[in-house]
Amino acid sequence: MSVQSNVEVRTEWGIVSARQAGRNLAKEIGFSSVDQARITTAISELARNIYLYAEKGEIIIEAVEEIHSTGVKHGIKITAKDKGPGIKNIRQVMEDGFTTSGGLGAGLPGVKRLMDEFDIDSVAGEGTEITTIKWNS
């Protein structure tokens, strides 16, 4: 199983490559086609944010696992990193309906709902790092 892929995002091609890398790994882990579509949609949204607001950054895709008493849980972890302008008011962008897209479910709250775990760190003027995980149930 591939350990980690880093995809640079500075054009729309980068978005497509990140999706491809995410889909390949999701398939390998054994996600259903619905979950694959969810994971790639989340990657798309994160990569588009980089492309639109930070100009460049990277998407890191890796397999993760968690050991439970009942067995091993497999998942996929997406990290989106950029050194763009950062987000001044994180609480605001995490609110439904805030995104400039007119709030049709897109944006960061949409990504959070598609995935199982979501974490965001952003410093205005320095950049943003978003980490999100989907577990294969």
Binding site: S33, V34, A37, R38, T40, T41, D96, G97, G103, L104, G105, A106, P109, G110, R113, L114
Partner: peptide
């Protein structure tokens, strides 16, 4: 169908947002 699935993702996201807004 894979293609259709991808097209429906936008509706899926809008649907979840709708639910969350309704709760709010």
């Amino acid at each position: 169908f894979e293609f259709l699935l991808e097209v429906m993702m936008g509706y899926g996201m809008a649907y979840r947002e709708h639910q969350s807004l309704r709760d709010k």
